[in-house]
Design a protein around this nucleic acid. Structure first.
Length: 273
DNA sequence: GCGCTTGTTAAAGT
DNA sequence: AACTTTAACAAGCG
């Protein structure tokens, strides 16, 4: 779930709550969640304040007054919660930052796929992890140049963080639907016009999602994402009636690149590559 | 209680 | 050799 819009929402939340107050201590339930040695993390953070935030793709970097950063990756289910009293502590708060003010920031990690660690140089980190330009910053020309070299299917290519950073499995289906491009098109087969349409769809979907603070229920009616909400509803038979919000034909639910994929075979035809 | 889900990456395949 | 594909990872939830 934490794709670019969620992480951007978390970034803003962090900025509104956690800046300019000294850290007193850090609780870590399981050191598997850390990419930095626990003792080092605590000794470097104690007494420090967070001063700024940066996001690239699904990665959040929080700058400290010591010049270094704390890197957050939210995995598949990560979340943040700022609170004052212990009884407000959310479930799965497996990492907690204790501020001297008495307030706390919980890094909620239900499935332990989340990660936190100290990063001294963000640029170096992004290069080492091969994280490409942020999906909101990448130019059409750069996207076109990269896609032109890719022999794989367009959906897995867009999910590849070394191609474009921030797109996850729900957003990619929405982007391809809005661009009317079949998820199994060969990336390199897209025409210039199609790449431009795709680029516009990426901007549209991400900006819409951020405006809605990643609350999918608030997305416009012509977004395909609502089908997922139906599909995960307790009414199993609803699955048989998932219709395209544009043409009202039956949607197709398959697997592409190993991930569950929703698309409209009518509006997103598989043209010959 | 089994199967599905999410993002990333190591390993396997071409 | 370099690119692409697949499976494993953890664990909650329906």
């Amino acid at each position: 779930m934490p794709e670019l819009p969620e992480v951007e929402t978390y970034r803003r939340y962090f900025e509104e709550t956690c800046l300019h107050q000294p850290v007193q201590d850090v609780f870590v339930e399981d050191t598997k969640l850390l990419t930095t040695d626990y003792d080092l993390l605590v000794s470097r953070l104690r007494g420090r304040q967070f001063v700024a935030t940066e996001r690239v793709g699904k990665n959040l970097f929080v700058q400290t007054d010591g010049g270094f950063y704390v890197h957050f990756h939210f995995g598949m289910t990560g979340d943040l919660a700022y609170y004052q009293f212990e009884e407000e502590r959310p479930r799965f708060a497996r990492i907690v930052f204790y501020f001297q003010s008495g307030y706390k920031l919980a890094f909620i990690c239900p499935r332990k796929f989340e990660r936190i660690g100290i990063v001294d140089n963000v640029t170096e980190y992004l290069k080492r992890k091969r994280i490409a330009e942020d999906a909101l910053a990448i130019s059409t020309a750069t996207l076109a140049a990269t896609l032109g070299k890719k022999k794989a299917l367009i959906k897995p290519v867009l999910l590849d963080q070394s191609v474009i950073a921030g797109i996850g499995n729900w957003i990619v289906d929405e982007v391809l639907f809005q661009a009317r491009i079949h998820p199994e098109r060969l990336a390199s087969s897209l025409s210039g016009a199609e790449v431009r349409t795709l680029h516009e769809a990426i901007q549209l979907v991400l900006k819409t999602a951020i405006t809605c603070e990643a609350n999918y229920a608030l997305f416009p009616e012509n977004f395909i994402i609502h089908a997922r909400e139906w599909a995960t509803s307790p009414y199993a038979d609803v699955k048989q009636h998932l219709l395209c919000p544009v043409c009202h034909q039956k949607l197709q639910i398959t697997r592409v690149g190993g991930r569950t994929t929703y698309f409209c075979p009518t509006d997103q035809p598989l043209v010959a590559d």
